[in-house]
Write a protein that binds this DNA or RNA. Structure first.
Lengths: 99, 99
DNA sequence: GACAAATATCACAATATTGCTATAATTATG
DNA sequence: CATAATTATAGCAATATTGTGATATTTGTC
């Protein structure tokens, strides 16, 4: 494939800046949600007066897994896992995309 | 390991029935959430007047992936994918566990 | 009906999440 | 301080999700 042409066009430069900015925002958004979910799990667990080991047993997994889920930097949250936790605590999982 | 003792105790029988019922409920709950999320994605996409192919391009994947996400029976929803969709549509993903 | 556009389905590779065990590190309790 | 209880980390296997391309099916238009 030919080499990409050098950009000298101001509009193109701004467009690329826009794209890059959008990606950065999306990435920050993801981090925000991950941290929020981690905190939510922690709050629910401690609110129910459970240790990580106890919650783990309730949903059929191990303590280390709960610890991982409560790590603010963890990126792997899934709806199925959130559902397992919600059910164990007799609550409901709600998802929405708005605004 | 020794064979599990035969259950003749009424309390034990009821407890097992309770556990089984709880598992069934959890399973139904998961199905409900999955279907809801699938529908939410469909509504957001059509609301934004996008084809599956267009939305796919916006989030950097393929049309078949969007089709899969909109299938009510799909069990693999992840927060990262929901985030990608929310960001592409300039909206925010909200998660809560309540009630 | 013919054709195009959009969606659904399939199969398989690539990647990510979860399960699991062991152990280190931290926190609570006497 | 010693000990137990709890939480954090690490590594790797098992499983699940996503990426991708090819093709079938459906839907809309003329």
């Amino acid at each position: 494939m030919a080499k990409k042409k050098k950009t000298t066009d101001a509009v193109e430069i701004l467009r690329r800046r826009y794209i890059k900015d959008k990606k950065r925002k999306a990435s920050l958004e993801a981090e925000r949600v991950n941290a929020e979910v981690a905190r939510m799990i922690y709050d629910l667990r401690t609110g129910a007066d459970l240790t990580q080991g106890e919650l783990a047993k309730l949903i059929g997994t191990k303590q280390s897994v709960i610890s991982r889920l409560e790590d603010a930097d963890y990126k792997g949250h899934s709806l199925s896992m959130l559902n397992r936790i919600a059910n164990a605590l007799n609550k409901k999982l709600n998802i929405s995309i708005e605004k």
